[in-house]
Nucleic acid binder design. Structure first.
Lengths: 226, 226
DNA sequence: CTTGACACAGAACAGGCGTTCGAGTATTAT
DNA sequence: ATAATACTCGAACGCCTGTTCTGTGTCAAG
């Protein structure tokens, strides 16, 4: 006789999607989503089905639930990590606001909804040092870097960059945050969008340009069909 | 003409009480309280009054609010600390569960709802090293240490203790956590409750006794009348 | 084929909870 | 005293949200 197993072993795609959404939503709103919100963003038309999955995720220990309490769910940290390591997601990055940078001891302790797991094998060997942090892109203001709303960019904190590297910069003169390819030129800097149809930003030497970090990886949660 | 000031300068006692309750509740339940719950625990009979204070706390920047969203409030970190320092509250301590101990880099970054401010002047000079952490007592199982439900104990992590010191111990044999005065005796250990009417716990050398830390301070938020 | 576990939809219910309104009391300024 | 401001209460409204129930289609085991 067979043991009772889930149809698709491990977490189904929908489980994963819900888990991801909870983490993403929590990061943006500072509080968990409601059942209906989960349904909308995960293409589940019935609240009962969401509840159905939530129950499973609770049984499998991926989340905790406070029944009867609005948005009473939270991610637990027991997603067993194999040969991968966690990168803390310090917050969201959007055009109009400064970039949150890793302060002191941000590394070391972070909650599951505030981090992503990266397979070490996917990581450039030189960046293995755990001095990395991540940001979730919010809004469509970064599309010129071929980065979409909701994407997660993994950065290595640095104040300098070499030509051709994609960097996260804070333009204090324009009060703007952006992701661009960095090129130092004779009379200033050129910030080249990844999207070749868009014009670069030219900066004079005098204009303030704060490099916050360089992008070492971009993670995009692809929706399969919608 | 006078400037418009609050009746009692700075935060009124009720403001403080609400702030404390939110922090305490959040720690226990992992999510913020509802307006009605705040009212009950702060002796405010009307939800509108709680809302009234919450609005003020939001304006003064002590909390953030997500209107319309259930329990949509959270503490912000801008409680200016003078000559006092913050101690992270790692969690709750209760009889049936192991004690959360400070792991690696728990110190350094912690959210306001997870910490308390201690006036340096109140602190024994020798403990000034910021290697301290705090736990919120949950349940009445610690009353034998003259500690009540909701109290916050500040601990210094250590594995050893001298006779007469109050320590937080984990008795793995009994699967129990407790706060007691510690005495080493010839054939084992004696854990003496602070309440003299209660019997001490006698332990043989063979029984496992894990000292997690010693109590350096107890903070009790006194309700004035109830 | 039948059965039953599983995945899903949709509707309805009921309670939780933020909001708002009307009104009353206390404190302070003029 | 009078008015303005701060504070408090209680009740009602209505949306938000978790729960529950009924019904459907799928798929593998017996």
């Amino acid at each position: 006789m067979m043991m009772m197993v889930r149809k698709s072993k491990g977490l189904g795609e929908r489980h994963q999607r819900i888990l991801d959404f909870i983490a993403s939503y929590q990061r943006e709103h500072k509080h968990p989503p409601s059942i209906r919100e989960i349904g909308e963003h995960c293409n589940i038309s019935s609240t009962s089905v969401v509840n159905y999955y939530l129950d499973q995720l609770e049984k499998t220990g991926h989340i905790e639930r406070d029944r009867k309490i609005s948005r009473g769910m939270r991610l637990t940290g027991n997603t067993p990590l194999g040969d991968m390591f966690r990168v803390p997601i310090l917050g969201v990055i959007q055009a109009g606001e400064p970039i949150p940078v890793p302060t002191n001891a941000d590394f070391g302790s972070f909650t599951p909804e505030d981090s992503v797991e990266i397979a070490t094998s996917l990581m450039p060997a030189k960046e293995k040092g755990k001095e990395l942090f991540a940001l979730q892109v919010q809004g469509d203001s970064m599309i010129d870097a071929m980065i979409n709303d909701g994407d997660i960019v993994i950065l290595k904190p640095t104040q300098e960059a070499r030509n051709g590297e994609m960097v996260a910069v804070w333009l204090s003169d324009r009060n703007e945050t952006t992701l661009k390819y960095y090129y130092k030129e004779k009379d200033g800097y050129r910030l080249q969008p990844a999207n070749p149809t868009m014009k670069p930003i030219m900066l004079k030497k005098t204009e303030a340009l704060e490099i916050k970090g360089k992008v070492v990886m971009v993670i995009r949660k692809v929706e399969r069909y919608n």
